[in-house]
Nucleic acid binder design. Structure first.
Lengths: 330, 330
DNA sequence: CAACTGTTTGTAATCGATTACATTAATTAT
DNA sequence: ATAATTAATGTAATCGATTACAAACAGTTG
């Protein structure tokens, strides 16, 4: 029932080349002919098949977006940014959840190997870097938010060290000296960078870095924040503030602090990281570091599309912002 | 640099047909030949192009998933279910956020019109039903969660009326007589169904249905829950319980009730709907109705793939469950 | 050894577009 | 009026696979 370009050509009494020219508005076509073809297209309700076009053009117009968890609110605005720009440029996105599983990841990598996708925006901190770098030799890839320094795959991100520094400095400024730090696994670059920032702030104010105040979690989920706080509250020298490396951890911390009978921010102040939507919905609302997520997303696609078109691109580091809310203001 | 099937054939000294046979393990190929071809494939690092295959097979192996908002936690598990099954069947999903915008929606519909996608799972309550039904005449479509009764597009969903009935019944059983109802817009089927359930529970227990207890919100977001509670708490006959038609609304309600100086559940009990992850992270944890999301997702893809293969499918109604947590247990 | 059967392989059409190049028609210049 | 130039259209190759059908080959049987 669906017409193809041949049928349109036949019905309009022209060649397929002419139909194609009308379709793309390029090459010269006599006005009379163009109108005739356009009418036929409407009459037959013709829609050009992307399958044919894609094969001929050796492109899929699909971009792979790699994220660890689709439910992680951190990515929402980035994705929105990516999607808006992508669509405006005639691309669509394949949102791929790796679950940090190498097999799943490989299935997705295969999509670009088999030309089903034109490029990748990787946002998975746990990505298999060797595989990604090998893929990057033959396919356009950019990194967003998390990146590997050693690779020369371009990235867009923020200065994590500086952001963590500011968060901790804020806690110090409002009177805290014993500041716990809920970090994620050190194998992630951002974790190491934020640790640097945490330590720099303490040292700059003459405060000791206590190993027992630094807690490493396996994942960034809510429960891990609860667990971390459980152990932190048991310390002899109980901290008066907690800086968590993600809002989800911080929200878990909030819940657990409350469950243990303490009050935020009077007993313990809390700062998160990412400014996810929910950070404003908690009780009390969470002080946090905001990254320009939407912007990051748009820049990342811009870069990727440029790469797909064969251009070189430069990495970008964006600004961040400290959002002060109830969890640090008594 | 990337080899195609011709080059493999030439290098292996066979025809493209033989290479294709080896690739799919069908048709008979002499063992010696198969090994030779397989070696060549490895040697040339050949990966068959999906573009060629898709054109020849007139399929894209892409499924369109239509959701209103990517950030709505309600869809997470459904999507996970869809994705797992899809991948196991050799499909990939295009997760499409409509933002309830008809233009955006039309861009996505075009993807199936232009053969870029093989079918659609629609989960957007605000979908343009005429457009969807017209599309369904020529393309495989199934509805998930929200559906239109008048269409004959198959769906998988739960019994919303019964679920609402049980939620309200629970509130009555623990001693509430004045129960407010935060519903969404009546133009949505589920809103009408849950309203029926709400009223049935009240009537069955000899309680009056008071119009002023029923609040309609424009959207399902957090802020709308806050706003609803603001107006509800101002009522003369202040309710002792609130049933919200989504967890996000309920969580907004929780926050606002607290902000107004009331205590949950002692002053006001709250029940939500959907059992999103966050419903367990709030203070207090939220009583809610759980839908078998993951299952819904898997069934929806199953149905869609069957339709794509040309089979007929039946609609399905699944069971739900009341999850009792702190927001209703004093 | 001829005839027959079954296995293995190759040839070429096909999916639906795009586009370089060739050809024809129309217009302008001389 | 003819040559030169430009505009309009068509022909056919191409992208990279799949697959019906034909052909070649090997093995069996009488």
């Amino acid at each position: 029932m669906m017409a193809n370009i041949q049928q349109v050509a036949q019905e309009a009494g022209v060649s397929v080349a002419t139909v194609s020219r009308v379709l793309h508005g390029q090459g010269s076509v006599a006005t009379k002919t163009r109108i005739k073809v356009e009418d036929t297209i409407k009459k037959l309700n013709y829609q050009p098949s992307m399958l044919g076009r894609n094969l001929r053009n050796s492109e899929s117009r699909l971009l792979l977006i790699l994220i660890p968890k689709i439910s992680n609110p951190f990515y929402f605005d980035i994705i929105k940014g990516i999607e808006n720009i992508a669509i405006s440029q005639g691309y669509n996105i394949l949102l791929c959840e790796t679950d940090s599983s190498p097999e799943r990841e490989n299935i997705y990598f295969d999509l670009v190997r088999t030309k089903m996708a034109d490029g990748i925006i990787s946002m998975d901190p746990a990505v298999n870097m060797e595989a990604l770098m090998e893929l990057a030799e033959n396919h356009p890839i950019v990194q967003c938010s998390e990146y590997a320094v050693e690779s020369d795959i371009p990235y867009v991100t923020i200065d994590s060290e500086e952001a963590a520094y500011r968060a901790v400095k804020h806690l110090i400024k409002i009177g805290n000296e014993n500041i716990a730090f809920i970090n994620s696994d050190k194998r992630y670059l951002y974790a190491r960078q934020r640790n640097e920032g945490y330590q720099r702030a303490l040292k700059e104010h003459g405060l000791a870095v206590k190993e027992e105040y630094i807690y490493h979690t396996e994942h960034l989920g809510f429960e891990y924040g609860q667990q971390a706080v459980k152990s932190i509250l048991n310390l002899e020298d109980r901290p008066t503030a907690v800086f968590a490396v993600s809002d989800l951890l911080a929200i878990g911390a909030l819940k657990e602090i409350h469950a243990c009978g303490f009050h935020v921010p009077d007993d313990i102040a809390v700062v998160g990281f990412d400014n996810i939507d929910f950070s404003n919905m908690t009780n009390p609302a969470l002080t946090t570091i905001a990254q320009p997520m939407y912007k990051m997303g748009t820049l990342a696609v811009d870069m990727l599309i440029k790469k797909i078109q064969g251009n070189d691109v430069e990495s970008i580091i964006l600004d961040h912002e400290l959002i002060m809310r109830e969890s640090t203001s008594g």
